[in-house]
């Protein structure tokens, strides 16, 4: 997986990479939905760099910005017994919540 520089921080993932959402504990404030945690998807788009909401909510401006990505999940991977093969869901996640998928 090639690192490519966009903005100020190195972006670890590229479009098409398979990633898994980490299942981290909530530190008071997070915008990472429960339903994607632990689930694997594909990077659909690399978006912008920003403070993560966990830092932004506490006005920790000195924290390091992170690369954000839009990740595409198959609905069948998100929900047990989801009946339609083609359906997908996309949502945006900061890099710190993602790791390379092994499945």
């Amino acid at each position: 997986m090639a690192n490519r520089e966009t903005g100020n921080v190195l972006a670890r993932f590229n479009v098409g990479d398979r990633v898994r959402v980490k299942d981290l504990p909530n530190l008071f404030y997070s915008r990472t939905q429960m339903y994607v945690r632990g689930v694997s998807g594909v990077i659909a788009s690399r978006t912008y760099q920003s403070l993560v909401p966990e830092d932004e909510a506490w006005n920790r401006d000195e924290a390091q910005p992170q690369q954000f990505y839009i990740v595409r999940f198959r609905q069948k991977d998100l929900w047990e017994e989801y009946p339609f093969d083609n359906d997908t869901l996309q949502t945006e996640l900061p890099e710190g919540w993602l790791e390379p998928a092994t499945d």
Partner: peptide, 10 residues
């Protein structure tokens, strides 16, 4: 394909 876009970030 129905694609739900959950705009949970910016």
């Amino acid at each position: 394909e129905i694609r739900v876009e959950d705009s949970n970030q910016k």
